[in-house]
Structures are given as structure tokens and as C-alpha cells.
């Protein structure tokens, strides 16, 4: 290396950043395709159980969600609570909530309204049974138990 003098400093080749946006756009399209716009912030911690015999919910616009689980904010305690739309609610609020949801939809769609129960897997059945009784009284008979797809015997 000493025999040949360095003919002036060689500039380090610049890293071309032209392809960087392409990579980012690819990631962006991936997220746009795979994800779903989140409806309401869950105020309760929900760890869904696994099941294999599942079906996809057809029309998302005709699905209403009830979340049940221990609150994310420890100030509310550790007992499971029920969340309707974006706030906590009592069992007695379910009837009015169902009626309101029914009002929002067209006549033809009313019988197809599904209520999806997203319940934490550690919850005891007492509160879930009460919620189902209230749904029966409100004539919201199509229900869906929200689960993750997976083997039931894994746990």
C-alpha cells in the first residue's frame, strides 16, 4: 500500500435512500390490508379463550360488542366489569342499549343484528349468564362468543 500513493481521498459512496420509501410503503400496505380500524378503546383487559369451531362475523356493521373483564385501570378494582360501547355499564343498561342499537339500523337489517361477547377467559359464568338473560329479554337472540382460533386442549 505504501508504493502507490493514494490518489486523493476516495469519497465513501453515499447510501442511496431512494428505495427507503418503497420499503415503508410496502409495510404500510401490509398494515392497511391486515388490520381493522379499532372501534372503541377497551377499558377492560380481555384475554380471549381459544376455540376451533369458529365462524367469521359477516357484516361488521351489524355487530355490537359487549366487553367483559377486569378493568385496565386498577382504580376500579379487579372484579370483572361490563363495557358497552365506550363506558362501563350495569346489567340494567343492556335493554336500553339494545333498543338504541336497533334504532340505528334499517328495518330489513334488524333481525340480523348480532351481539358479540368479548369476555376474558378467567371470568366466572355468573355475569355472562346474567348478560345472556338480559339479551334474551331484549330479544337480541343472535350472539357470538369472540374467541381466538386455536386448539382447545392446548392450555
Amino acid at each position: 500500500m505504501s508504493k502507490f500513493g493514494r490518489k486523493g481521498k476516495k469519497k465513501n459512496p453515499e447510501i442511496s435512500t431512494a428505495s427507503l420509501p418503497d420499503i415503508i410503503f410496502m409495510l404500510l400496505f401490509f398494515f392497511m390490508v391486515v388490520t381493522v380500524m379499532r372501534e372503541d378503546d377497551p377499558k377492560v383487559k380481555i384475554s380471549k379463550p381459544n376455540a376451533t369451531e369458529t365462524e367469521k362475523l359477516e357484516k361488521k356493521s351489524l355487530v355490537d360488542y359487549i366487553n367483559v373483564g377486569p378493568p385496565t385501570d386498577p382504580r376500579f378494582g379487579t372484579e370483572p366489569m361490563m363495557q358497552l360501547d365506550d363506558s362501563f355499564a350495569e346489567l340494567s343498561d343492556i335493554n336500553q342499549w339494545i333498543v338504541d342499537n336497533r334504532e340505528r339500523r334499517d328495518e330489513a337489517e334488524k333481525p340480523a343484528i348480532t351481539t358479540s361477547l368479548k369476555v376474558d377467559k378467567e371470568t366466572r359464568m355468573g355475569i355472562v349468564t346474567d348478560i345472556k338473560q338480559e339479551l334474551r329479554e331484549a330479544n337480541a337472540l343472535k350472539i357470538n362468543y369472540s374467541v381466538n382460533k386455536g386448539s382447545v386442549t392446548d392450555n
Partner: peptide
Amino acid sequence: IAFLLLIFFLVTTTMDQDIGILRQLPPP
């Protein structure tokens, strides 16, 4: 611009698959 859009989607969406067991409750 691409980063901004990406962060927007990361924050506002969930990969929550909406699947479950469908049931029909009996009338009261």
C-alpha cells in the same frame, strides 16, 4: 410521508380477527 402514514395506521388499527362461535339464544 410514508413513516407518518405508517404510524397513523399502527396506532388506529388492531389485528383483531373477528371470529367466534355463533349461537342463537332461545326467546325468553
